[in-house]
Design a protein around this nucleic acid. Sequence first.
DNA 1: GCCCAGGAGTGTG
DNA 2: CACACTCATGGG
Length: 290
Amino acid sequence: MTTTAEIQLSPLNLQQTLGCGQTFRWSALPDGSWQGPLRDQLITLSMSRERLLIRSIPGTRNAKTIVRSHLRAGDDVAAIQKTLAERDAVVARGMHNLKGLRIVRLDEWECLVSFALATYANIPRISKMIETLARRYGTEIVSGVYSFPTLEQMKRARLPDLSRCGLGYRAKYIHSISSNLSEGDLARFKRLPYDDLREKLKELPGVGDKVADCVALFGFGKLESFPIDVWMERSLARLYKQKGSYAKLAAFAHERFGEFAGYAQEYLYYNERAHAPNGACMFSKQRRDG
DNA sequence: GCCCAGGAGTGTG
DNA sequence: CACACTCATGGG
């Protein structure tokens, strides 16, 4: 059964929010709506003027709550933009066409695995690896759609089986993380401040500076986190003449952008990809028919 | 076929 | 600390 609901959420642009590489399981439908599994439901989102239309299968009353959490409805994004714009003119220009981009909130475990898989892979492939794990180890929500496997479900994965999921060298990292991490660890991680959290995350195999920052930002909601990948290195070099180690660039970013550095990162990241030839073409998958 | 990907781990200078 | 090399593979 399907239920529908509406909420008011502004600013919000679904393409900018769901199609920019913070999350890997949303697909654009031909009519401009976006569809993806969220917890135990298949959610379809579309905009009707300023209102967000939510369709959920199988419908439950808490679909609104799930979506509001995912889109961080409690954040005053306009105020964040104002704060950042007053602080930095370059970011102010960069956010001009991205007013509807919201940083999302992912499940911590799903986020950790997703970005551990994201090393040295392009976005379409990351989506495919996650999809393979979901189909093999997750739970079927509706026909053909699977939730991301829980930690408990991933603990059942044997390494030889994981190695046949197209993960490449990442299979052994995912296996080790799944084997050694507990729900208690994740619960303790939630109570840590940013710096301690990223140190704990970096203790996990396959998790370095950049992955730890992505997980802190998108999974644990640390808006001060500023993940630096190859695109951000290019951006910081091009726009701020900053080069050097991760630690040096991160220190610059935190000094420059402050408590909402994560939003600044998204604006700069998006602009850098749009600026490069073919830079933006690999963002979002187009959903296959059928 | 060729190139490179929202890097990390390990070893060396 | 900085750099070089390797890792395993698929999508463009």
